[in-house]
């Protein structure tokens, strides 16, 4: 893929995070434990795919970017591509990401670039719901039965090694943050820790032990889980390029 302007790269990262998590969540459609949960997850997916459409639209042609790129060209963080696992693992992933995404978008709503500011100001209201839903489930499962607690513990443990990447800055994003268009994500970590710890305390869960962080999503170095996701998401446009409703 040709090199993009820094703002486009940033928009691509934001868009890819939302798109891949939206696609992951949509895998639950028709399979969730109850009809209410099914509707909730589909709603979250819809919000995220809408946000992705807006961010990818800043980077270029949203549909082409979503359906005609290979795994190496995706710049989403590794957390969002992790498999759904059981419902607890899905909620663990959502809780960690939504808590981060809400902080990120809240800061981005003050971006000097009015396109980013507008998308973020809209999306942050939606993500507040995602954060609340997933926090509620972390508490309910964590402070639930022996079985639900074990599953939530395992879910958080699986996802924890992908947390550091959320806050990772590189030269490109540091420059954008300095110029006022982007956000210094490293500055969000303390507040994220505070919020996550508060929910974990309510859930009577211990914070997972620090693990060696796994990084690389922003540079296209993905885990083995992204490829199968893309093959499903992109199938139609790959088989019938340009197909429309």
């Amino acid at each position: 893929m040709a090199a993009l302007a820094p703002l486009s790269t940033y928009a691509l990262r934001l868009g890819d995070d939302a798109l891949i998590l939206g696609q992951r969540l949509s895998e639950w459609c028709g399979h969730a434990p109850t009809i209410e949960v099914d509707l909730s997850l589909a709603n979250l997916a819809l919000d995220l795919i809408g946000q992705a459409t807006h961010f990818l639209g800043v980077a270029g042609d949203a549909d082409k970017l979503a359906f005609h790129r290979d795994a190496l060209d995706f710049s989403n963080c590794l957390l969002v591509e992790q498999p759904n696992g059981d419902f607890a693992q899905t909620m663990a992933r959502q809780f960690l990401f939504s808590t981060f995404q809400e902080l990120h978008l809240h800061a981005l709503a003050s971006s000097k670039d009015e396109r980013f500011a507008a998308i973020a100001a809209k999306a942050v209201k939606e993500v507040a719901y995602h954060r609340q839903l997933s926090s509620d489930w972390v508490v309910r499962l964590g402070d639930g039965t022996e079985e639900s607690r074990a599953r939530m513990t395992a879910g958080l443990d699986w996802m924890w090694r992908f947390v550091d990447e959320l806050f990772q800055m590189d030269e490109l994003e540091a420059k954008l943050a300095k110029g006022g268009a982007g956000v210094d994500k490293s500055e969000l970590r303390a507040e994220w820790d505070r919020r996550v710890d508060a929910v974990l305390a309510e859930a009577t869960l211990a914070r997972p032990a620090s693990r060696r962080p796994v990084l690389g999503g922003r540079r296209g170095h993905h885990t083995e889980h992204l490829g199968p996701l893309l093959s499903q998401m992109q199938f139609l446009q790959r088989a019938y390029p340009g197909a429309v409703w």
Partner: peptide
Amino acid sequence: EISRFGSTPCKAL
């Protein structure tokens, strides 16, 4: 409230 997410994004159950 049964669920904060309903049949459309703008409605709760």
